[in-house]
């Protein structure tokens, strides 16, 4: 009973962070900021949901599948964020107008 309660608390926390991440995806001004908010919050939130399910289920085969899912999400989501942001910068999508500095652009111009 207490195990289910702790698991439900983890699931609730995870869904809350998911919601904040998606809100950031809608509200923030350009691709890079959206990628920041969405990647961090949604990764942590989904990992929280999966960890809550693992606590409720215990060590059966459902539990092991969920653990595999957590490891997989933590390994892959930063990599795809990295790939998308680099591709966006190389295809010349500009930063938002609030931006202060862009040292990547400066170095690329020096090279050309």
């Amino acid at each position: 009973m207490t195990r289910e309660l702790i698991g439900m608390i983890f699931i609730l926390l995870g869904i809350m962070f998911d919601f904040f991440g998606v809100l950031g995806l809608v509200r923030l001004p350009d691709v890079y900021n959206r990628l920041q908010a969405a990647t961090k919050c949604v990764t942590f939130g989904s990992a929280g949901i999966l960890f809550g399910v693992f606590i409720i289920q215990g060590f059966n085969n459902f539990g092991f599948k969920v653990i595999l899912g957590i490891v997989f999400i933590f390994l892959t989501s930063p990599v795809s964020a990295h790939a998308i942001s680099r591709a966006a910068h190389r295809s010349k999508i500009p930063l938002a107008k609030e931006s202060v500095v862009d040292q990547y652009q400066e170095d690329n111009e020096l090279k050309d």
Partner: peptide
Amino acid sequence: VAFIVIHPSLPIKPGIV
């Protein structure tokens, strides 16, 4: 990130360093 997202005036100052 949650603090930034719920704030009404989005207190950000982005850039690439």
